Simulated scan of single mutants.
Amino acid sequence: MQYSFTLPADYDMAIVRQRIADKGHLLDHFDGLMLKTYLHAQRGSSSDENLYAPFYVWRDSAAMQRFLGSEGFANLTRAFGWPSIRVWPVWDVYLSPEARHARFATRDIQPIAPYSPLESLRDEQRVLLQRDIERGAVAAVSAFEPTSWTRVSFRLWDGTLPAHATGQRYDVGHVSQP
């Protein structure tokens, strides 16, 4: 699951970084949360826009619903607005304990061509996920969304972003990983 807030070009991103520093730990032990990455991107350095875009991996939809009904989510919407939330059924996920130390993230969303053999696509994505783990990813998620027919590859990196990394790049402010 991910939502993203596009902030004004002149927005002081130090406000987002401070919010993450102050509140990031609040979900460290949320029941049913496997991973939350507090992501941000600054216009000009890693992105075309200023973004605050947390990415989550949930154990099940009931846990996600508990979070979306929580006071914490209500506070977020009061601060940033009512987001559109992307939800992808997960094909594969790898979450190492080192994910807590991630410094960067990449998220790549690509279309799925009509009539694509989904099992073959999943197998291809599994190979790419394993390749990225071997190249240093400390967390990796492959998933798809059957309404818009897209696939997502999400990776966390604890060192320098590899040259082959594609898609949106983010800085990681905090990782909640119970």
Rank of each mutant, 00 (worst) to 15 (best):
G173D: 06
S61A: 08
T166L: 14
S142C: 12
H101F: 10
I20C: 08
I109W: 00
P111F: 07
D28P: 09
V141D: 11
Q130N: 14
S84R: 02
V127F: 05
V16R: 02
E98G: 03
A99H: 11
A143E: 12
Q125N: 14
V16C: 04
L156D: 03
F5Q: 12
Q130W: 01
T160L: 10
R59P: 04
D132G: 03
Y94F: 15
S96L: 08
I133V: 15
R17M: 08
W149D: 12
T37E: 07
A139W: 10
L76Q: 06
T37L: 10
G24K: 08
L129V: 09
R66D: 09
H174T: 08
F55E: 01
F5L: 04
S4W: 00
W91N: 12
A14T: 05
D28K: 08
L39Q: 11
F73N: 09
T166A: 15
L35A: 11
Q18P: 00
P111Y: 06
I20V: 14
I85W: 02
D132Y: 06
D31Q: 14
P146K: 02
D132S: 15
I133M: 14
F104S: 04
R169Y: 02
E71P: 07
M34A: 14
T106R: 06
R126Q: 11
F104Y: 13
V127E: 13
F67A: 04
V175R: 11
F67W: 11
W82T: 14
V87W: 00
N75E: 13
T160H: 05
A74K: 12
P146N: 12
